Amino acid sequence: MKRKLLGVIDATTFHDDLEELLMHRSLAALPFGGRYRMIDFVLSNMVNSGIRSVAIFPKLQCRSLMDHLGSGKNWDLNRKRDGLFFFPSPINDRTPNRVGSFDHFAANLDYFYRSTQEYSIIANCYTVFNFNFRPLLEWHMHSGCDITEIRHQDGSSMEMYLIKTSLLIKLIETRNETGYTCMKDVVSNIHHDYSICHYNYSGYATMIDSIQSYFSTSMELLKPDIWRQVFLKEQPILTKVKDEPPTKYIKGSSVKHAMIANGCIINGMVENSIIARGVTIGKGAVIKNSIIMQKCQIEEDCILDSVILDKDVKVEAGTHLKGTPHSPFVIRKGTKQGALMNS
């Protein structure tokens, strides 16, 4: 029992530099890698680490996130005991870079009171990584630390914290007296008596906090050495399962160095790109260095280079769109791009 972990995922963060992609969804529900959502990575890591009770604290637009996660069945979290829990925030303001808001936790304190897990892992929802939390728990227990902060190899915080559940409850209950608003406040304060330790994570990990980091990290997935570090057979990244037919490649089409999800129809050229489910690419179209989200329609003879198309975008025949790796061209969800623009 002592070695059991409670999973707590803060899904409230909003990054202004990602606003173009967060108009209709939370950051946790942002599509990534053709068939995943951002939250899939930390949630899968928790499940693969043996965590059977996970609380998700969403805010802003959480309908897309709740639709994606459902009952938690795809992560084996649809359980009679423990399982997946949603606790929407009663706070309406945007609070970027404030993982683990004690006010948000306080509004759902009964959940922590009822939990039987002695330790809690508090994590953000926007890190691409594959990490088993079990060795971290063992390290934390042997170190005698009160709180362990996970850090990158370069020493920067990954905004993930391991703490005894009883201490977490105490910090929540005394927040008004101490002035601590979140976990970051606690670990950065040198005037308390808690022992703060740092655990350096040596694997691949990238935090998505801007359009540029979203684009560059997506392109990194096309590198075999990076892909192998993120998608491990023994620790799979789980996601919502959709029953769709295989992608159809029309005679004359060309695909090089790309990730193509199910249900697409490819009748043009795709190179160094990520294509999500149900995308249609017309004859003569050329897609390079781009991210095309679910159910986009790209008509004949279009040329797209360094472009991000959000879901359900239609690009009219003959349209040319070009961005750069540092400033990709972003088209919002459900809009039309071409001679007659409806965005």
Score class of each variant (00 low, 15 high):
254 S>E: 15
171 L>T: 12
269 M>S: 13
237 I>V: 14
277 R>S: 14
65 L>I: 08
87 F>P: 05
141 M>L: 14
286 V>Q: 14
307 V>Q: 09
159 E>P: 00
299 E>K: 12
300 E>L: 00
277 R>A: 05
9 I>V: 12
94 R>I: 07
87 F>H: 09
53 S>I: 02
164 K>F: 00
81 R>I: 11
320 H>F: 10
194 Y>P: 01
170 K>G: 05
119 Y>V: 00
309 L>I: 10
228 R>L: 00
291 I>W: 01
58 P>Y: 13
137 L>W: 13
238 L>Q: 10
154 D>W: 13
292 I>C: 12
258 A>C: 08
100 G>H: 10
105 F>P: 02
339 A>V: 12
342 N>S: 10
31 P>M: 11
244 E>T: 07
226 I>N: 07
326 H>Q: 13
131 F>Y: 12
267 N>A: 15
342 N>I: 04
165 T>I: 06
218 S>F: 02
212 Q>W: 02
338 G>W: 01
19 E>Q: 11
82 D>F: 13
75 W>V: 02
256 K>G: 01
271 E>R: 12
246 P>D: 15
343 S>Q: 08
177 E>K: 11
124 N>H: 05
27 L>D: 10
232 L>S: 05
82 D>L: 04
121 I>W: 07
215 F>K: 00
250 I>T: 14
71 S>Q: 11
181 T>N: 14
317 A>G: 10
56 I>A: 07
281 I>R: 05
187 V>G: 00
89 S>A: 06
321 L>S: 11
65 L>C: 09
23 M>Y: 15
328 P>S: 04
286 V>K: 14
164 K>G: 06
268 G>S: 07
147 I>N: 04
36 Y>C: 03
249 Y>T: 02
208 I>A: 09
275 I>Q: 03
60 L>V: 03
17 D>T: 03
286 V>N: 13
290 S>V: 05
166 S>W: 04
315 V>I: 12
166 S>A: 14
18 L>Y: 09
209 D>C: 06
90 P>L: 02
179 G>P: 02
74 N>Q: 12
60 L>W: 09
205 A>H: 10
120 S>P: 06
289 N>Q: 04
232 L>Y: 05
2 K>C: 01
14 F>D: 09
27 L>M: 13
167 L>N: 05
57 F>T: 01
182 C>K: 07
131 F>I: 04
186 V>Y: 05
256 K>C: 03
39 I>F: 04
240 K>C: 07
325 P>T: 03
22 L>S: 10
269 M>L: 10
234 E>S: 13
173 E>P: 02
252 G>F: 13
301 D>C: 00
285 A>N: 13
49 S>Y: 11
192 H>I: 00
313 V>F: 09
